[in-house]
Design a protein around this nucleic acid. Structure first.
Lengths: 340, 340
DNA sequence: ACGCTGGGCTAAATCGATATAGCATCGTTT
DNA sequence: AAACGATGCTATATCGATTTAGCCCAGCGT
């Protein structure tokens, strides 16, 4: 029932637990354990299928070989796909992942950080919420490897992997303009987090650069925690309130999904009557008819870079912060191609 | 930097660590610790924000307050949504979740079980793959709480939570028949796991009960690991090969998604030329036009029951196996309503 | 005055691994 | 032959909590 411990091996081999530990940790040479003893121990360990007790090891070494993954919502396709990549990559390094969803709620996020902390995770992958900067800095000063994702705090020097949200939004908006759409609205979150700001700025700058008039009435901000039904109501109210509207840019995948739903229930023809582009790709966008143009994030790449940076920092603490900005890709589909 | 330990509290309170442990574990009464001392310790613990080191505790007690969640694919909407529910429910009981995806690959599943085992998780939520029965029984005989989900092994007595796959498929098929569809095919996985068998049986029995002729040529089985492109090819080949076909039942959500894609690329009109029903709901099905009829699993309920059973077993080992079969719901949408 | 009971608390062992300090033994050097 | 340095291995403390066994003292009965 109980697992095989280092003592069991020691007993069978007729040596001390210390020796066994040395050998199994590859320190045989360094600690001058003879070939014979070394081999004998290896053999017995294999035969008994010895697996070190991670708890005991963690208690002694302070390393749990576990990383904490804090996402906005594990049920959201973007984060779930990322979780999959992170799981795979971490596994390659012998790490397991503890996850948690913040719902973009600062209190929940703080709670998660605390739990992960006293569970002694070795490193953190964090999708930060508003006002989480202090907590992040606290962790940093505790010398814990951390990497932010999806967004970051401009005034905090930390690792992060994000996409160029500005460029993504800029390209999306420019694309709509080039397709002949004239009055382009944006639906975003009522959030002043950097990723949302950047997307909004990309949008406004694109309008400016192409000499398309901008007005505040073209911007709708929805609270994060609004449910589907109410979001749809708000979006519909907004879309019908803008005169001569002929295109919308949705700033996140689920806003895009709500948006499509809303537009459809208004009976408007996507693509013709109203151009649509959303941030983030999703099966829905690909399969929708008409298919929805989107700004796609390279999820595999993001996940790989995240784990890569984290592992490097786990092995060489105090590395200089890595701030990685990946290129999003504009995937043009039918929803933005049939103006006129 | 280092956390507050029980010793720190003991020192401040001028008592022994033992006493502190008793008090903080609610054994003050039982261990006859005086009110005064008890309160003093509580106060100090709160002030220092003491959090027990889970590793140390786990090492001593053998309980890690962690459960392992093995799913088929965490990036799949169904499993991701479930992971969210499991996370929330487990959290209520103070448990964290370690997850892993099998890709329906037995070797990966075995690897996951092993890792979770030597990480000493307290209990397991498992979406089993083929041939995992032996490993499950081994865990069971090690007295580890386990609950299977989505599928189970008929010859193994274990806890499980599933939906009535037979009934779901039966209702879906019957519904198509009642809507006037005459020649109904099924696309399923080349798997002899119970959930797939049941779905197939539900389908055939429905045909039989409604006196609709059945033929082997109406069944297509795809391997699990076929990628999107090849799956689509296979599905298209299959659909065009069946004479007078006028409806299809897809036995899983991603088969449904592939199916829609395939049918669309064949240029067939869903609902009119070909009725479609899929197992599992998905945003895509709801938003597709025409919207896709589906057999929806009650994900929230599934997750809650799973964690509930697991927690009960964690607290009272050797309970009798709970085998919970929930009702799926047929959600009728346009894809099955426009025959003729 | 002596033993007994029970209240209130603690010393020490323990979980399984790792890290540190150090003990024999043997061959070599001067 | 005493000193020295490798060589090969081990005893012991440690991580932070829990748990077992039991100490000490006060009050009580006889």
């Amino acid at each position: 029932m109980k697992g095989i411990s280092i003592k069991d091996i020691a007993k069978q081999a007729g040596v001390s637990p210390t020796t066994v530990s040395f050998v199994l940790n590859g320190k045989a040479k360094e600690k001058r354990i003879s070939e014979q003893v070394s081999k004998k121990i290896q053999k017995i360990a294999n035969r008994l299928k010895y697996k070190p007790n991670q708890l005991a090891r963690g208690l002694r070494t302070g390393k749990t070989k576990t990383i904490g993954l804090i996402v906005e919502d594990i049920a959201n396709n973007f984060f779930a796909s990322l979780a999959k990549v992170v799981e795979d990559e971490a596994d390659k390094h012998g790490y397991k992942v503890l996850y948690g969803s913040t719902e973009d709620n600062t209190e929940k996020a703080k709670g998660l950080l605390e739990v992960l902390k006293y569970r002694q995770v070795d490193g953190y992958i964090i999708t930060p919420t508003k006002n989480l900067d202090k907590d992040i800095e606290q962790l940093k000063s505790a010398a814990k490897p951390i990497i932010l994702m999806d967004r970051y705090f401009p005034h905090v020097s930390s690792n992060y992997v994000v996409v160029d949200n500005y460029k993504g939004a800029y390209n999306a908006t420019s694309h709509l303009i080039k397709q002949g759409y004239k009055k382009i609205a944006v639906v975003t979150l009522a959030s002043d987090q950097v990723q949302m700001k950047d997307r909004l700025e990309g949008y406004t700058q694109a309008l400016k650069d192409h000499h398309v008039p901008f007005s505040k009435t073209l911007v709708k901000r929805l609270p994060f925690d609004l449910d589907r039904v109410h979001s749809n109501e708000e979006i519909k109210k907004f879309l019908t309130s803008v005169k001569d509207l002929d295109a919308v840019f949705f700033a996140t995948n689920y806003l895009g999904i709500y948006g499509i739903e809303s537009i459809r229930s208004l009976g408007w023809q996507i693509g013709k009557e109203i151009g649509v582009v959303s941030f983030d790709d999703h099966d829905i966008f690909r399969l929708h008819s008409p298919a929805i143009t989107c700004v796609s994030q390279p999820i595999g790449e993001i996940g790989r870079r995240i784990v890569d940076v984290l592992m490097k920092e786990l092995n060489h603490p105090f590395a200089t912060p890595q701030q990685i900005v990946l290129e999003p890709e504009l995937i043009v589909r039918e929803s933005s191609m049939h103006k006129g």
